[in-house]
C-alpha cells in the first residue's frame, strides 16, 4: 500500500516540474543535457540514419555496380513478389506461432527465475545458481544444436538409447515436425533464460528492503510479498521489454532456426529470416532482402505503436 502512495507522490512532483520548465526557458536549461546527448545523436545520424537511405533499394532491382542512384527502379514490384508469394501465409503463420510461444513461454521464464532467485536466502546458493544458469549464453547456437543432436538423435541419441533400453520405442524428436516448436522454445529457454534474468535482477536491486519489512509487520505471506512488492518493482522493466520484443515479433533467431531446420520440418520451421536467406542473401539479391526486412519492420512498428498506446491507456510509461 505504501508503494502506491509513494508512486503518486513521484508523479505529482514530476508533473509540477514539467509545468515549471515549460514556463521558463526550457531550452536553455536543457543545454548541458543536449551536450550529453550530442555524441549519441551524431551516432544515430551517421551510423543509423544516413545508411537508412539504403532502404530505397527495396524499390529497385539493385545492382551493386550501378549503385543506389543508377539501379533500375521497380516501384513496388518487390513488395508485390513478397505479398503474392504462395508461401507468405505459411511464413506468417510459422513466425507468429513461434513468436507467440516465445512471448508466452520464453519471455516470462527469466522473470520467474529472477523472482525465485531474489527469494532465495542463502547467498552462496543464489550465487551459484545464478552463475550456472547464465553460462549457456556463451555457447553458440552451433554448439547448442550439436548437443541437442547428441541427446535427441533417433539413431544414436542419448535419450533414445535410454528409451530403447527401458523398452520404449525410439522417438523421432528431430525429424518429426510435431516436436519442432517445443524444441525451438525449449532451446531458447535453456540458452537464454539465465542471461535475460540479469536485467530483472538489476531492476529488483532498486527495491527498498524496508518495504518487505513493513509487509512482514503487516503479516503478509511470502506469496503476497512477491505479488505486492516484487512484481510491481519489475513492472516498468517488464512492460518496456515486452513492447520492444513485440517490435521484433518476426525475428526468431536466424542462426538458431537455420540450424534446426530440415526438409521434414520445413513446413513449420520456415520463417521470414530463412526465407530471405534462401531467396535474397544467398543470391546476393539485396533488394529482395531489404524488401522483406522492411515488411518485417513495418509489422513490428505497428505492433509497438499499438502496445505503446495500450500501455499509456493503462497509465504506464511506454517506450516513447
Amino acid at each position: 500500500m505504501r508503494m502506491e502512495i509513494k508512486e503518486e507522490a513521484v508523479e505529482s512532483t514530476a508533473s509540477s516540474s514539467v509545468a515549471r520548465s515549460r514556463s521558463s526557458s526550457a531550452w536553455i536549461r536543457g543545454i548541458p543535457i543536449y551536450v550529453m546527448i550530442l555524441p549519441g545523436f551524431l551516432y544515430f545520424v551517421i551510423f543509423r540514419y544516413i545508411p537508412m537511405g539504403g532502404l530505397v533499394i527495396a524499390f529497385q532491382e539493385y545492382d551493386p555496380f550501378l549503385g543506389f542512384l543508377n539501379s533500375p527502379w521497380t516501384g513496388l514490384d518487390n513488395f508485390h513478389r513478397l505479398l503474392t508469394d504462395p508461401d507468405l501465409g505459411m511464413l506468417l503463420r510459422n513466425s507468429l506461432i513461434l513468436s507467440g510461444l516465445n512471448l508466452i513461454l520464453f519471455f516470462p521464464a527469466p522473470i520467474l527465475l529472477a523472482i525465485m532467485l531474489s527469494e532465495v536466502s542463502r547467498s552462496w546458493f543464489r550465487k551459484s545458481v545464478q552463475t550456472i544458469i547464465y553460462m549457456p549464453h556463451f555457447l553458440s547456437w552451433v554448439i547448442v544444436v550439436n548437443i541437442t543432436v547428441v541427446l535427441f538423435a533417433t539413431q544414436d541419441g542419448g535419450i533414445n538409447n535410454l528409451l530403447e533400453s527401458l523398452g520404449f520405442q525410439r522417438i523421432e524428436f528431430l525429424t518429426d515436425s510435431h516436436y519442432f516448436r517445443a524444441l525451438y522454445v525449449l532451446q531458447n529457454i535453456w540458452k537464454e533464460s539465465g542471461w535475460s534474468a540479469i536485467i530483472f535482477l538489476a531492476a529488483l536491486a532498486g527495491v527498498n528492503p524496508m518495504l518487505y519489512e513493513a509487509a512482514v509487520v503487516d503479516g503478509a505471506s511470502r506469496w503476497r510479498q512477491v505479488w505486492h512488492i516484487t512484481l510491481p518493482a519489475l513492472k516498468s522493466t517488464v512492460i518496456i521489454l515486452f513492447i520492444l520484443r513485440l517490435g521484433q515479433v518476426l525475428d526468431l533467431g536466424f542462426e538458431h532456426i537455420l540450424l534446426i531446420q530440415n526438409p521434414v520440418n520445413l513446413g513449420v520451421a520456415d520463417v521470414f529470416d530463412t526465407y530471405v536467406y534462401r531467396n535474397g542473401v544467398l543470391q546476393g539479391n539485396f533488394s529482395y532482402s531489404t524488401t522483406v526486412g522492411v515488411f518485417k519492420s513495418v509489422i513490428g512498428l505497428v505492433l509497438i505503436m499499438l502496445a505503446n498506446r495500450l500501455t499509456k491507456v493503462f497509465g504506464q510509461e511506454g517506450v516513447y
Binding site: 540514419y49 545508411p51 537508412m52 551493386p64 539485396f286 532482402s289 531489404t290 509497438i304 516513447y320
Partner: peptide, 24 residues
Amino acid sequence: WLKGRKALNLMVLFTMLFGGGIIP
C-alpha cells in the same frame, strides 16, 4: 522535462526497427 525528448526517443526507437543494411 526535456524539450524534443519525444522526437529523440522516437528517433532511437525507429532505428531498432529499420536499418539500412550492410552496404550503406
